[in-house]
Design a protein around this nucleic acid. Structure first.
Lengths: 169, 169
DNA sequence: CCAATGTCAGGTTGACTGATATGC
DNA sequence: CGCATATCAGTCTACCTGACATTG
């Protein structure tokens, strides 16, 4: 039995916001936070469905994408973790999987022999290209939003990330 | 070794957006989607840290909250799943845990004996009240956003949820 | 008989803690 | 020496699929 996805006859988050506001302060915050949780699920479900034929989760896709954006196609695992804000053991684990799939190989860093680089293989590079094309045809799991909505969304969430200490300046 | 949370010297998502735009279309969508993923992590980390002393995950807190918002403090498990968009086995699991903690009890539905209601206990009701007060003092994991930001965020994500079929009208 | 409700068994992912080998 | 890098072992939550008993 799958998750029950019949649409409700009302907006469940607006309803929760009304109930909240009748009892407690910060209903605006509560509504926004719950909206982020729901939006995350929606986008993730779509994205992972698109990536499934490539045998990629979003976490592994994001790693391939990051490597694809580097000049050499390689980056130290620790730096990958810092960029994606992912736990070191999760990086080890996800790179293990990418190595098994032949999308990435582990290479010793010449300049710092403690560090290990993940380097894209030709197969990995081709896969991230094809997966990206597939994501583009699905609007990246963001239906119904125009350019203005998307920019406003990114801008507000940038403020949040900045205040949370994701990055400086 | 924890996750490396030293702030980057640049906005990693804006950087990814530039790299994306130089290669592929839909960079605006990609940037917004990745922003949602990061925001989710930030808010979830804060919220779960606040809920930890109450021995609640956000999933279990949300269940208690939903029950708290009903007139009788009780709701059928299937309806809980539909409202929270959670898989039936996840509901069974999370209600199991709430029962063990004494926050909820299972009750047979008089009118439909297939259905089982989760019903708040006095302890559950008190816990959700105290947990909510704690969340309020942490701005619900949404630092740096004013009322305008929060409303705009909720409104844009509402368009997304509507287009994704979360609810009608 | 068919549909709906909830549960159980079993598998996957990801994130975490704590300990450890190696190199700066 | 202290610190950083990556890995390993083990735990935990959450999600999923498929099968099942019970009831409408």
């Amino acid at each position: 039995m799958p998750t029950d996805r019949r649409p409700l006859k009302f907006d469940p988050i607006a309803e929760a916001g009304r109930q909240w506001a009748a009892r407690w302060p910060l209903a605006t915050e509560a509504e926004a936070a719950i909206s982020i949780f729901r939006a995350y699920r929606i986008v993730l479900d779509t994205v992972e469905a698109v990536l499934e034929p490539f045998e990629l989760t979003f976490a592994r896709y994001e790693t391939l994408l990051l490597l694809h954006f580097t000049p050499t196609g390689a980056m130290a695992l620790g730096k990958v973790g810092q960029r994606l804000q992912v736990h070191p053991t999760s990086i080890t684990n996800s790179v293990d999987r990418l190595v098994t799939q032949g999308f990435v190989e582990r290479v010793h860093d010449e300049r710092d022999r403690r560090a290990i680089l993940a380097r894209l293989t030709p197969s990995g590079r081709e896969t991230v290209e094809r997966a990206t094309a597939a994501l583009a045809t699905s609007a990246f799991g963001l239906p119904g939003l125009d350019g203005e909505d998307l920019r406003s969304l990114t801008a507000v969430l940038r403020k949040l990330r900045l205040a949370a200490g994701d990055f400086d300046e």
